[in-house]
Design a protein around this nucleic acid. Structure first.
Lengths: 148, 148
DNA sequence: TATCAATGATTGATTCGTCAATGAATCAAG
DNA sequence: CTTGATTCATTGACGAATCAATCATTGATA
């Protein structure tokens, strides 16, 4: 993002790089667990068993991506999948004991990491930051709905 | 990112989604031009001919990614590449007339898009947002250097 | 009931990114 | 001069995301 002259371009540039580097940092700290997979497990951990469809919406990735991630997580023994008997289309996803144990540890680690990331920012600045991000998010959502 | 309970987690969640959705919005508005390729062309447009190596550092992607992008852009007729005669290792990348023309238009479009994205945010909030992002970025950079 | 639409999951193709290994050219030191 | 290290670009293998097409199941309706 070369044209970092304008204020707005700089903001967008930093959002991109922060996201990218944060992902890399997360990966290296969490021993290869990607943020997406963490998100999948975290949802199952805090919400309980979920249909695959709902998991996909919560994590906000493609259907295909979810299917492939869940396959991996299943072979790793972290989750189980079983078809619903009432409706044979849906699949219920659930943590195994191993998965529950692991995600509990990972959650602590992530907590520790995010604490470190914000150690240099005052809480009021954090609140202001969140507010601005929400404004931006809303604008983007609006744009996407109207221009498509 | 389910655990949107804590302030900090919400911030990280929004950074991720804003970045993702912004990329998609950019793609659809710019007729399939990816942000990375825009960045490549933009650098060439504003800085002039560049050695491939420097382009790679500016855009901040892998060596491999750059060579592949440049190959594509070359077959599209937007850039030319020629080896340096003084040093046969390096390759100089330059915009074609077509490329210059196109990126000029795309730059306008992007300008228009970012203007729309920040229409709901006061300038002082934008400045505050940028400042916070920089703090976050610095902390991440520090963490990456110390933990690796 | 037979058909057609909607829903949920899967697969294949494509894109984009990384890493690791390789090749080619240059440079420096014995 | 030659050997070895460095730099730059390329390639192949891989993981992750998307889209489009497909398949099975369910539900609605004519």
């Amino acid at each position: 993002m070369r044209d970092s002259c304008s204020l707005r371009d700089q903001i967008l540039y930093h959002i991109i790089t922060v996201q990218k580097e944060m992902g890399q940092l997360f990966d290296s700290e969490m021993g290869g667990l990607s943020l997406t997979r963490y998100d999948v497990l975290s949802n199952l951990y805090h919400v309980g068993p979920l249909r695959q469809r709902e998991l996909q919406q919560r994590v906000d990735v493609d259907h295909a991506a979810i299917t492939r991630h869940l396959k991996q997580l299943e072979t790793q023994g972290l989750i189980t999948r079983r078809r619903c008997e009432k409706d044979n289309r849906v699949i219920y996803v659930e943590l195994t004991d191993l998965g529950r144990h692991q995600i509990a540890r990972w959650t602590e680690q992530k907590q520790c990491l995010t604490d470190r990331l914000f150690v240099n920012m005052k809480v009021e600045d954090q609140q202001q930051l969140l507010a601005s991000l929400k404004v931006l998010q809303d604008t983007i959502d609006y744009e996407r709905k109207t221009t498509i």
